[in-house]
């Protein structure tokens, strides 16, 4: 995947997060790639986490069932993009 593709993937991810998680007062371009998504940072919670699981499934064909794995993957836009790059099936 080229650097350009990775950047496009991250932009798409941010747009999906803002739309699917109904984030208010957050624009996709405000989300910092390396910033934590949960807790401080974007302030996402447990219901967002399972919503992201479905988002990965619907948009990238990735099935992620293991909660411990989820915690690693969902740290930031960077970690999400890295995981999608390697595991996407669509």
């Amino acid at each position: 995947m080229s650097e350009q593709d990775v950047s496009a993937l991250k932009t798409q991810l941010k747009e999906l997060l803002v739309a699917q998680l109904s984030l208010v007062d957050v624009r996709p371009e405000d989300i910092v790639d390396a910033a934590p998504l949960f807790g401080e940072g974007l302030g996402l919670d447990s219901l967002d986490a399972v919503e992201i699981v479905v988002l990965l499934q619907r948009h990238y064909g990735i099935t992620l069932q293991d909660a411990a794995m989820g915690r690693q993957v969902f740290q930031s836009i960077d970690t999400l993009a890295d995981y999608i790059k390697v595991n996407r099936t669509k």
Partner: peptide, 13 residues
């Protein structure tokens, strides 16, 4: 639309 394993937990709750 997406399959029985791909419902939105937000909509469900």
């Amino acid at each position: 639309q997406y399959g029985l394993d791909q419902g939105s937990p937000t909509h469900f709750s």
